[in-house]
Write a protein that binds this DNA or RNA. Structure first.
Length: 764
DNA sequence: CCGGTATGTCTTTTT
DNA sequence: GACATACCGG
């Protein structure tokens, strides 16, 4: 562990009321206002409190005016929360903090002011991920590259990767060109960028890249912002990518009052370009930086904290923290092995009902999964039980087909040059303007270097289109023109309604016999409702570009269901962590792509999961699971083995983790368990598991102090030998091809080769 | 031009 | 198993 080097708190004597109740470290973090500060804040250590108080302190002591503070977060939600909490501390002067927001929204603000310096107009549109892929695809098509091999999606990902690293096409290392389309990667990147300029558009990565270019080429502009931002604060610093890091470093050069807050153990966005390196390197980047560690945890019980700490200790390259708590001992972390995914959902459902019957609110409980496909089993189970639940993160509102279509209409009305919008809705609903007509328009547009709307007008004058197509296109163009006039003196919500109605778009869904149609109509109503909160169409479209969700409805009385990623920053009294199986968690795909770095990131994800829990943390794994419609056998996650056994209690039928009686404690904690609480031992699911395994006694076990971590995986010896024919409940008959501890590799007659635990097969 | 079937894909996700 | 895209036949 690196030695902590707390900075000298300036103004130590300050005794403003907002400082009350802070612990020493938090207080130091608030009062060390000048110079670079790295605040290493472990999970549940009151980070947000320290950070908002710090901002309040800067304002209160008039070290800075609200508009001189740059405060960046990653999500809109985090920005909103920060604003609200500062407001409770300093009141309305928070309104002056116009530089409080996400990286992207602040970069967009700056770019709008200087757009012409990179060849854009300040009215540029911001493209979302879907548009990016579409555009990338067009670029590939135009370059005559095999679209089967090199997809738009792939190109968009490569370009995104470069942008995350702050690389404009000219700066991409030559040897990286070969990663895509036989060396054409950079050329395609260039083509993509010039297409963006023609469209007067910027994607999310561009917002930052353009900022960097502007700052580097225009020292006067950079100096202006450097002067302005006398204090800077960055939340979730461990999630910054290189581009964001460069941006921050440029802006901080003058005053050097930059405070970065983060936790290297919670860096879980590496796959999106985040560099943990940024936080590990902070003291080198900013010599003389004060490093303040927040290590007192106010959230979880000692067992939960102990389990999490033990788990994360397997990672190398950590700055190192020792979390501690004064809270009372609570229950140990529970690990439960079950037969299959259905049973897992059933048992968790039962647990939730039993907690509920003890008076716990549903909104105090959360199910956190590795990947969203795991959610379905729980949704189904909750539905049959009649339990209210709420999915966080699911399909995003503005990414839904109908909403994107509606937005395309509005965007086209606002900027007729928006070819992407034109493409999207010119034939939606069907107007008889299919591929052929579109090809004509594209040809004209490309030949003359004009937008598709303008090309349409020319096509109408020519005879290149059939009469029917021409009539239809004329009608469409006239409509768009008329709506653009209407837009000038109509409330945006009224306009949206009028347009969708007159375009026949509402009608299209009303006539649709798709089972999803009613839901889509509801979404359109919601969208119009959302528009009505804005006074101008521009205001609305600008807002939408940087926000993917509607304002969240509160989750009172509903179980939370979300991915581990979505859970970062949240906390719940009871947390369920299902699906702790090899290949799912850690995710095989992730490991295949990024090896050990990915494994460490998966482990951090596990750490994030466990540390969300305040009182009760319940991990589970299933021996069999249906993935993509196929049954797969699964081994318990290595992360389960890494949990320190003193903090863990295993509830499972004996066979599941393959231990013989001797490798377990003979001391059973069964007698200590409140039967009402753990009624699942008598419920149908449990009985089924018992019958299915058709083996021995089922008792919960406590692990005693022999050995340091759990050994649920491959301990014990199997009684089976290579070559033995066996029978498995789900996979049928097969022959053993290898034995490793109690893991068997079996070649099943009908299900192929699988790894199974020996207690799940019997000699045939 | 449209609507049907075949084929391929399937983390994590904010902006 | 579900969904999206792609291609083919009417």
């Amino acid at each position: 562990m690196a030695a902590a080097k707390p900075g000298t708190p300036q103004n130590q004597g300050d005794s403003a009321p907002y400082l009350e109740g802070l612990n020493d470290e938090q207080r130091t973090a608030v009062l060390t206002t000048d110079g670079p500060v790295l605040m290493l804040a472990g999970a549940g250590t009151g980070k947000t409190r320290a950070l908002t108080t710090r901002l309040a302190h800067l304002l209160h002591t008039e070290r800075a005016q609200p508009y001189q503070i740059l405060a960046v977060t990653f999500t809109n939600k985090a920005a909103r929360e920060m604003k609200e909490r500062i407001q409770t501390l300093v009141g309305d002067s928070v309104e002056g903090m116009k530089w409080l927001g996400t990286f992207h929204s602040i970069a967009a603000q700056i770019l709008r002011r200087h757009a012409e310096l990179v060849g854009l107009k300040s009215s540029f549109t911001i493209l979302d991920a879907d548009d990016q892929v579409r555009l990338a695809k067009q670029v590939i098509e135009a370059a005559n590259i095999d679209e089967k091999r090199w997809t738009g999606r792939g190109l968009a990902a490569v370009i995104d990767g470069w942008k995350n690293r702050g690389l404009v096409p000219e700066k991409v290392p030559a040897d990286e060109a070969y990663h895509f389309a036989d060396g054409k990667g950079i050329q395609l990147y260039k083509a993509y960028q010039s297409r963006m300029i023609t469209l007067n558009a910027a994607d999310f990565g561009d917002l930052l890249i353009h900022n960097l270019v502007i700052f580097q080429n225009n020292p006067d502009v950079l100096a202006e912002y450097q002067r302005r931002f006398s204090y800077m604060l960055v939340d979730e610093y461990q999630d910054t990518n290189v581009a964001q890091y460069l941006w921050l470093r440029l802006l901080a050069q003058r005053h050097k009052n930059i405070c970065c807050v983060g936790d290297d153990d919670q860096s879980i966005y590496g796959w999106r370009g985040a560099e943990v390196e940024n936080i590990l390197r902070f003291e080198k980047d900013f010599p003389g930086a004060a490093v303040i560690r927040l290590e007192r945890n106010y959230r979880s019980t000692p067992a939960i904290l102990g389990a999490a700490s033990g788990l994360i200790a397997s990672n190398k390259d950590r700055l190192g923290k020792t979390l501690w708590t004064e809270s009372e001992d609570g229950e140990k972390v529970r690990v439960r092995g079950v037969w299959d995914g259905d049973e897992e959902a059933r048992l968790i459902g039962d647990d939730i009902e039993s907690e509920q019957s003890k008076g716990r609110s549903l909104s105090d409980m959360a199910v956190l999964v590795r990947a969203s496909f795991q959610m379905r089993a729980f949704e189904e189970r909750f539905n049959t039980l009649g339990l209210a639940y709420r999915v966080v993160g699911g399909p995003r509102f503005y990414e839904r087909e109908e909403n994107r279509d509606a937005l395309a209409y509005l965007r086209l009305i606002r900027s007729p040059d928006n070819d992407l919008a034109f493409d999207r809705i010119v034939n939606k609903p069907k107007r008889g303007l299919g591929n052929k007509a579109l090809q004509v328009l594209h040809k004209i547009a490309r030949a003359q270097g004009i937008p598709l709307m303008a090309a349409s007008r020319i096509a109408l004058e020519s005879s290149e289109l059939h009469a029917a197509a021409r009539r239809s296109l004329l009608n469409f163009v006239d409509n768009v023109d008329r709506w653009a006039r209407d837009a000038k003196d109509m409330a945006p919500a009224d306009l949206a309604e009028l347009v969708l109605e007159e375009a026949g778009y509402i009608e299209m869904w009303k006539n649709s016999k798709s089972p999803q149609a009613p839901g889509k109509l509801d979404n359109l109503k919601e969208l119009i409702q959302a528009v009505s909160e804005f006074e101008t169409l521009e205001g609305y479209l600008d807002h939408v570009a940087l926000v993917s969700e509607l304002n969240e409805n509160t989750g009172d009385g509903q179980i939370w269901l979300m991915t581990l990623h979505a859970a970062k920053g949240l906390e719940f009294p009871v947390v369920f962590l299902p699906g702790w199986e090899e290949e799912i968690f850690p995710s095989k795909r992730s490991l295949d792509e990024n090896g050990n770095a990915a494994l460490e990131e998966e482990r951090r994800l596990a750490y994030v999961g466990v540390t969300r829990a305040e009182e009760s943390c319940r991990i589970s794994f299933a021996a069999n699971r249906q993935i993509y419609g196929r049954w797969q056998s699964a081994m318990p996650s290595r992360f389960i083995d890494e949990l320190p056994e003193e903090h863990v209690e295993v509830f499972s039928e004996q066979g599941l983790y393959g231990n013989t009686a001797t490798s377990f404690s003979s001391q059973s904690s069964f007698d200590n368990i409140d039967i009402k609480e753990d009624a699942y031992y008598e419920n149908p699911g449990w009985k089924r598991a018992r019958n299915a395994s058709s083996r021995g006694s089922i008792k919960p076990k406590t692990i005693d102090g022999r050995g340091k971590t759990l050994s649920i995986g491959a301990t014990g010896k199997s009684k089976f030998k290579i070559g033995t024919r066996v029978f498995h409940q789900k996979f049928g008959y097969g022959k053993i091809s290898s034995v490793e501890g109690q893991k068997l590799t079996v070649n099943f007659d009908h299900s192929g080769i699988k790894k199974v635990i020996d207690t799940f097969v019997e000699a045939a």
